[in-house]
Design a protein around this nucleic acid. Structure first.
Lengths: 193, 193
DNA sequence: GTCTATAGGCTGATAGAC
DNA sequence: GTCTATCAGCCTATAGAC
């Protein structure tokens, strides 16, 4: 599928994602989106139902990406440590794949309204819970030290992975393979010898 | 200084910080802040000049906290690795000290207007630059492996430290000492044996 | 499917009585 | 220093001509 085969709705969502990321959801007006796409604000409503709808579709698409990726990893016969590495790879892949809209996953999701907010939060909580379980399996197997707090490890890793998009944007020079290699090292094996 | 000796301006800023964190700067109205403080929206302007001013004062106070803390560490005679540990401690301390307003440091700073935005960004960039320098010194001394990308290590650590506030809020059970111990372990020494 | 025109509501901020 | 009243502007979204 090439760029010019995109539906106008997809084009609107792409531009909106970019603006939401740069200015925030509330500070982005339909006027801003219309200007970016190249039409009048009123015309947007021939393709989308509301500003909310744009945010919902962008975020639920990403949430589904994570949910599906996680399911594959959970159902695999990888060892706990390999599952951890696969999760890092999943984040890197989704960051490259959804490059613009993935930034919304960090903060802008709070502007979702019900029932989308509940649906999104549910998926996100489920994801974190499963991630934590894998960390705990690593602990049981003695791969991770017993006195490491699983919650701290979890949120520490997730924070780094959530912010991936920001240097994907700043520093395009880093390839996917290199990014994956570095993150596995820094996040899992540690910095100091 | 006790809670009830706070000026009304400080009370307004405290409540605003809490709302900005929960709802975002743009989604928080002066009405919301007035309701939280217990006065009419118009009365707020007897204590503050504008909504912008609140955001600026909250963020510049934090930025100064980081700048000053960093200066102390830089001017100390600690070894590179100890400086790294001191930086982790600095983030933990400021997270506990500014518990509500520190959250704004993660995303809401984009709503600063000039010239405050430039001032803030300058301090932030300077902070990251100095942090990076300390990492590079660790590399020179052979404490950190040569093939680790300093930028990735830097942003990975900073991301985790920026998100500290979120589980400080969720999980008050973790003490400052324990948090500091765990983070030094997870961020610096690594997860996997 | 695009446009112009506009509704209806909320926003940050000000004026002026008390 | 607090209030009521109010302004001027911007916001999302709709109606209806073309």
């Amino acid at each position: 599928m090439e760029a010019n085969t995109k539906t106008k709705k997809e084009l609107i969502k792409d531009n909106a994602a970019d603006l939401f990321r740069k200015k925030g959801f509330n500070a982005t007006s339909m006027q801003d989106i219309a200007d970016a796409v190249g039409m009048k604000a009123a015309s947007l409503y021939n393709h989308i139902a509301s500003k909310q709808e744009i945010l919902e579709e962008l975020l639920l698409r990403i949430a589904n990406g994570f949910t599906e990726g996680l399911k594959e990893i959970e159902n695999s016969s990888l060892a706990p440590q390999e599952k951890l590495e696969a999760l890092v790879a999943l984040h890197v892949n989704l960051t490259f794949h959804f490059s613009d809209s993935i930034a919304l996953n960090t903060g802008e999701w709070i502007h979702l309204e019900e029932p989308a907010l509940s649906k999104y939060s549910k998926q996100r909580n489920q994801y974190e819970k499963s991630f934590k379980k894998i960390l705990e399996n690593c602990k049981t197997e003695g791969i991770i030290e017993k006195n490491i707090n699983t919650d701290i490890a979890l949120y520490s890793i997730l924070s780094s992975l959530h912010w991936l998009y920001s240097w994907h944007n700043k520093n395009k020079k880093i390839s996917k393979i290199e990014l994956e290699y570095q993150l596995k090292k820094v996040l899992l094996k540690g910095l100091i010898k």
